[in-house]
Design a protein around this nucleic acid. Structure first.
Lengths: 182, 182
DNA sequence: TCTGAAGACTTCGAATCTAAAGTTCGAAGC
DNA sequence: GCTTCGAACTTTAGATTCGAAGTCTTCAGA
């Protein structure tokens, strides 16, 4: 359980070695960074999923609560805005909202000034759930970064932000060769 | 659709500010690192998805090809090993293999020495697809890290590996408070 | 040999997502 | 005023997944 989480999964080092063996001309350092990023994110999502499950909500529902809270008071958004924010189709958003309404996490009502629009609003209960989830998540995150020195944290934050900007601002056929991502 | 998962998405800085506003007692630097990690990974997966789509395979199929290639020649694995490796249920693995067999990426045959077992083997075509996908992926990854100095790459790789180890070796009720992750 | 247990895979049903078609409402033009 | 177009949301059909039940094979013990 603790020591060998994934029975079939090779260690990061074994995986890098396998890449070198099967695909020539790969920079091991680049592959190490990319593989570690991917694995780290996967593990973190598993951890978040466990924590939110303890609160009786799914990871999907947590995403919706997060979007609503971060939009600021009065914690209202339309389904299509939520869908864009979460990267879902409007259809999936409709269903997800259905569930969350029956669970009392959000309310759905028509906008009286424009009856085509629908307003999704966070309930007090939904906001409480988000706060509880955040308390768990923040403890987890602090623990995760516990062994990093202040200097390491600073460098990590700066470098990751730079990489993110590079991916986000990638222009097709411009400076870099990165695909257009928007 | 999912091409623009972020039309309504706030910038990283805006999101950190929103967290500070809605949840007291959060370390902005920790949140910055965690948020950047999550976003970066999401963008990268979108990019990988586009590249594999160009080759006529899905991201899911790419994962299977990767597991088989990295297992080394003769590129054979059983369905349950593949399922463990990919984090799927055996049921999902059965269906995914079905598709890939009809597409000629892998073959499925019974193990004659133990007729309960099934052997999934990469086809030449499947191996070619993986190689093409790797060529695209490696170009993307090199471009992504292009602006990082050698020193930054070294620190990033080392720090990410350390974080990964911390998550993977987390002991319930031991040194850290991280939950058991598998 | 026979029988029961365990293992490996598949099948079945429910849940969730995407893509596309459908519905309702609002706004612009004739 | 009527019509048409477009926007916002919902509905429907198909795909993929998980959890649980089912099938087949192997192995150990009576």
């Amino acid at each position: 359980m603790g020591d060998t989480p994934d029975v079939g999964e090779p260690t990061l080092e074994e995986q890098i070695a396998a890449y070198q063996r099967e695909f020539q001309g790969l920079d091991p350092q680049v592959e190490k960074i990319v593989s570690a990023l991917s694995r780290l994110n996967r593990r973190m999502n598993v951890a978040y999923g466990r924590q939110t499950a303890e609160l009786g909500i799914s990871n999907a529902e947590w995403e919706v609560l997060k979007a609503l809270v971060l939009s600021g008071a009065p914690y209202r958004m339309g389904p299509s805005d939520l869908a864009k924010r979460l990267g879902l189709t409007p259809a999936a958003m409709t269903h997800r909202i259905d569930r969350m309404v029956t669970e009392g996490l959000v309310t759905r009502e028509r906008d009286e000034s424009n009856r085509v629009r629908v307003i999704i609003e966070l309930t007090t209960d939904g906001r409480e759930k988000w706060l509880e989830a955040m308390r768990l998540a923040s403890v987890f995150e602090e623990d995760l970064l516990q062994d990093l020195t202040p200097a390491e944290r600073a460098v990590l934050g700066e470098v990751l932000t730079r990489l993110l900007r590079r991916v986000e601002h990638a222009q097709p056929d411009a400076g870099g060769r990165l695909s257009d991502l928007e």
